[in-house]
């Protein structure tokens, strides 16, 4: 590096898909958070009932990162799963989870986090309780079920009514996780406000 004449950095052509270093880190870390919350024993919410906290990570990704980054973090997680890392709850992974009866729920995570982020962050930087509650319920439960149930019905060749009925078995757990997500999100706003700031350089 002998040439010391330095030109001002030309304005980089920023493509539609451009994400900067801070985004890369946050997207990757939220994919990892969701994977770690799926590890057995990560977080025993319901005593001995083997329900994992993985969907908690899904809902939090949208609520914290916002629509695009949240959805991308789910895409990253699912690509890693497809490439064979056992990152889904119970140590599942590989292409096979995308051809099984629960595949629709996984795709639902992507759309769901996007919807959560879009609703929760609709008012800019200030998060409100009502919007967070609506966002998590609509994106985290309604959207995910709306995609998950038809795919299950399709894969198992079952009528959609009974399939939906079967899915409601998990509804109470998902409602509890939605409630936890709302509380955690509103607490994080105070405990780590930086996470919600979109300007990457506002930090010491």
């Amino acid at each position: 590096m002998t040439d010391q004449t330095v030109q001002p950095t030309p304005v980089k052509p920023v493509s539609r898909w451009h994400i900067d270093a801070t985004d890369i880190a946050r997207i990757a870390v939220f994919a990892a958070i969701t994977a770690v919350l799926g590890l057995p024993g990560a977080f025993p919410v319901f005593g001995s009932v083997p329900i994992t906290a993985q969907t908690l990570g899904v809902m939090l990704a949208g609520a914290v990162l916002g629509a695009w980054r949240g959805a991308l973090s789910m895409v990253v997680l699912l690509v890693l799963v497809a490439l064979g890392l056992p990152l889904l709850a119970g140590g599942h992974g590989g292409l096979s989870v995308f051809v099984g009866p629960t595949a629709g729920y996984l795709f639902g995570w992507i759309v769901g986090t996007f919807v959560i982020g879009a609703i929760v962050h609709a008012g800019g930087r200030t998060l409100t309780w009502p919007r967070t509650i609506v966002g998590v319920l609509v994106g985290g439960i309604l959207v995910v079920y709306a995609i998950g149930i038809p795919v299950t019905a399709l894969v198992l060749r079952l009528p959609i009514g009974p399939t939906a009925l079967q899915a409601t078995v998990f509804l109470p757990f998902d409602l509890i996780k939605a409630a936890i997500t709302v509380v955690v999100t509103m607490t994080l706003v105070r405990a780590y406000p930086r996470a919600f700031r979109m300007r990457p350089r506002d930090r010491a």
């Binding site: 270093a21 801070t22 890369i24 880190a25 946050r26 990757a28 870390v29 939220f30 990892a32 958070i33 977080f43 906290a53 908690l56 939090l60 914290v64 936890i180 955690v184 607490t187 994080l188 405990a191 780590y192 930086r194 996470a195 990457p200 930090r203």
Partner: peptide
């Protein structure tokens, strides 16, 4: 959950700096 998320998000910010 909250302490875990806070250390994880702090990790994300440090990682962002390292990438930059």
């Amino acid at each position: 959950v909250i302490p875990f998320l806070v250390v994880s998000l702090k990790h994300a910010d440090d990682l962002g700096d390292a990438l930059t």
